[in-house]
């Protein structure tokens, strides 16, 4: 009986490994994005990140640092070779986060011209939108492209110690794309499955507050109770209150 279970376990492990292997050879075309501060927001397939004094860009090989002159024009001040292809960059509170195919690199940009690598957080996949709130990072992994359904995930990561990020939990969510966090609400776009709202007040145990179906959701910006959601049909603005999503305007696309 015991060996029987072991074999089953082994078979299960093989299936999981196959799934991971499959995910590794799958490429992504995600374009979700996330909220930033003061000046606006950045994106998960972002080409550059701006801070009050610097602009950072990534290409296939390097991270580039440009200093902003008083008029806003740019001058290159530094270049760092990257050892992997970075697909996305965003800025949050003196840190820049670079998303590669299999990890997120966190740089301290306190000394703007000289980014310092703090840590590397290994992922399963790359095309993962990430949002950050205080000491928490939320990332979605979408493996459905591989046609192995049911292993799309939302991960909560404690980044209090940036040199040692720790996973706090994994949650199954269908076809996740962009996400946004505001107060204790985490808004996760689920493509054709609409929008799901989590309560993140206990980061070790997220709870679902509400699900909203009937529209395609690809990306979201949250500003207190106001949401801007993009999807296949255009851009919708909502007010989220008392677990209800109230549509207040629509900009239709593809007319």
């Amino acid at each position: 009986m015991r060996t029987h279970i072991n074999r089953k376990l082994r078979a299960g492990l093989f299936i999981v490994l196959s799934a991971i292997l499959c995910s590794c050879i799958t490429s992504c075309s995600d374009d979700g994005s996330e909220i930033g501060q003061a000046s606006g927001k950045a994106g998960s397939m972002a080409r550059f990140a701006t801070t009050p004094n610097y602009v950072y860009t990534v290409d296939n090989q390097s991270l580039y640092v440009y200093q902003r002159a008083s008029d806003g024009s740019l001058q290159k001040v530094n270049e760092r070779k990257l050892f992997t292809q970075v697909e996305t960059i965003f800025y949050y509170e003196e840190k820049i986060f670079l998303g590669s195919r299999n990890a997120v690199f966190i740089y301290d940009v306190n000394n703007g011209a000289n980014p310092v690598l703090l840590s590397e957080y290994k992922h399963i996949l790359s095309c993962d939108p990430v949002v950050v709130k205080d000491t928490l990072a939320f990332a979605t992994f979408r493996l459905s492209d591989c046609r192995l359904q049911g292993i799309d995930l939302l991960e909560v990561i404690n980044i209090k110690d940036l040199q040692n990020p720790v996973s706090l939990g994994l949650y199954a969510v269908p076809t996740p794309y962009g996400l946004a966090v505001s107060d204790n609400n985490l808004f996760v776009c689920l493509g054709n499955n609409g929008l799901r709202v989590f309560d993140v007040s206990n980061p070790r145990n997220l709870s679902i507050k509400s699900n909203h179906l009937g529209f395609h959701a690809y990306d979201v910006i949250a500003n207190n109770d106001k949401l801007i959601i993009t999807g296949n049909t255009g851009i919708q603005q909502h007010v989220y209150a008392n677990n209800q999503l109230n549509l207040i305007s629509t900009l239709s696309s593809g007319l």
Partner: peptide
Amino acid sequence: PLDKPGKI
């Protein structure tokens, strides 16, 4: 008119 909206 909006046609293929990307980032917001």
